[in-house]
Simulated scan of single mutants.
Amino acid sequence: MISCDVSDPEARVSGVSPEPSGGGAIPARGKPRWLKVLAPGSEGYRRMRALTGTLRLETVCQSARCPNIGDCWQAGSAAFMILGVLCTRSCGFCDVKTGRPAPPDPDEPRRLAEAVTALALRHAVITSVTRDDLEDGGAGQFVACVEAIRARSPGTTVELLIPDFRGAPIPLEAVLNACPEVLNHNVETVPRLYPRVRPAASYAGSLQLLARAASHAGAGRVKSGIMLGLGEEEAEIEAVLVDLRRVGVDLLTIGQYLAPSRDHLPVVRYWEPEVFEGWRKRALEMGFAAVESHPLARSSMHAERLLGINDHD
């Protein structure tokens, strides 16, 4: 999951390149104006907060302290997070807490489907914490949520933002057999930075997961995302986009990394909006069908628009 907090430390990361090649970036000495967002408080935001509280549902919008929460919740859009609020991994960029999670809640799919119906969502995004403690990595809960939504709101398309299931093929196959309209799995960063950013994950393993999704008989659209600002070089970004397109990814998000706290990896660079627009154009040239690329872009932001759905016609 892409970290979404609006706070970040000003220190640099030791051991990563502090000077990405090319222009269009400024050192991380203070947050630039284009990352300023208004505090949420609209009527739509309050309605969403009340609904998720009543139904005891978690959202990654809250857990990752996403800066877009006011905009998305005002529009009646949210990324639901299943399988609890404690993750079994501790990635350097993520604000979700690490701990020993509780067993999956068998009533969670029903409550989630109720929220989707109450919000009249045309597109529902579901993600989760990583559950390495479960034999199936939580795949069964994803499937149950898809089934519950389709039983109650058959016109709603479903996007699943999944963990890597430790590379196990059976859980992934179960999720793919549920035939979500979008299968999303983020590579997050360039391979060189994985030991620091995603120490328990594998870049090659994530590519293999995406390739399997793209080749599945019932596959919908395949999506992935990357953060900028952790010390990556422009050539490395290009190489990741080439890899993603090669394995069949056709929907892409590119956003600015923002550190949740001083205990997380600090921002090395703030890349300017013009640079993100340049990567959007480059990705489209490579053959990606749709790209969301700007400093505040996140993996579930405007998900319906990226799929070609206007959720609030």
Results as ranks from 00 to 15, higher is better:
Ile69Glu: 02
Gly70Arg: 14
Gly70Pro: 12
Asp71Met: 15
Asp71Gly: 12
Cys72Val: 08
Gln74Asp: 14
Gln74Pro: 01
Ser77His: 14
Ala78Tyr: 01
Ala79Met: 04
Phe80Tyr: 13
Phe80Pro: 10
Met81His: 04
Gly84Pro: 01
Val85Gln: 09
Val85Leu: 03
Val85Met: 03
Leu86Glu: 08
Leu86Ile: 04
Thr88Tyr: 00
Thr88His: 04
Ser90Asp: 15
Cys91Asp: 06
Gly92Val: 10
Gly92Asp: 11
Gly92Glu: 11
Phe93Ala: 00
Cys94Met: 11
Cys94Ile: 14
Asp95Gly: 14
Val96Gly: 04
Lys97Gly: 10
Gly99His: 09
Pro101Ile: 00
Ala102Met: 12
Pro103Ala: 15
Pro104Ile: 09
Pro104Arg: 12
Pro104Tyr: 05
Asp105Cys: 08
Asp105Tyr: 09
Pro106Cys: 08
Asp107Cys: 04
Glu108Tyr: 03
Pro109Cys: 06
Arg111Leu: 02
Arg111Gln: 06
Glu114Arg: 15
Glu114Tyr: 07
Ala115Gln: 10
Val116Ser: 09
Thr117Lys: 15
Ala118Phe: 03
Ala118His: 06
Ala118Lys: 14
Ala118Asp: 03
Leu119Asn: 09
Leu121Thr: 01
Ala124Asn: 01
Val125Ile: 05
Thr127Val: 02
Thr127Phe: 05
Thr127Arg: 04
Ser128Met: 06
Val129Met: 00
Val129Ala: 02
Asp132Ala: 07
Asp133Gly: 10
Leu134Asn: 09
Leu134Tyr: 08
Gly137His: 11
Gly138Glu: 10
Gly138Met: 11
Gly140Trp: 13
Gly140Pro: 11
Phe142Asn: 12
Val143Asp: 13
Ala144Ser: 08
Ala144Met: 05
Ala148Gln: 09
Arg150Lys: 12
Ser153Met: 11
Thr157Asp: 13
Val158Ser: 05
Val158Tyr: 06
Glu159Asp: 06
Leu161Asp: 15
Leu161Gln: 15
Ile162His: 00
Pro163Asn: 05
Asp164Trp: 05
Phe165Asn: 04
Phe165Cys: 01
Arg166Asp: 13
Arg166Trp: 06
Gly167Arg: 04
Gly167Ser: 07
Ala168Pro: 07
Pro169Glu: 04
Pro169Thr: 02
Ile170Thr: 14
Ile170Gln: 15
Leu172Val: 09
Leu172His: 05
Glu173Met: 12
Ala178Ile: 01
Cys179Asp: 09
Cys179Pro: 00
Val182Gln: 09
Leu183Pro: 09
Asn184Tyr: 01
His185Leu: 07
Val187Tyr: 08
Val187Ser: 12
Glu188Thr: 08
Thr189Leu: 03
Thr189Met: 00
Val190Pro: 13
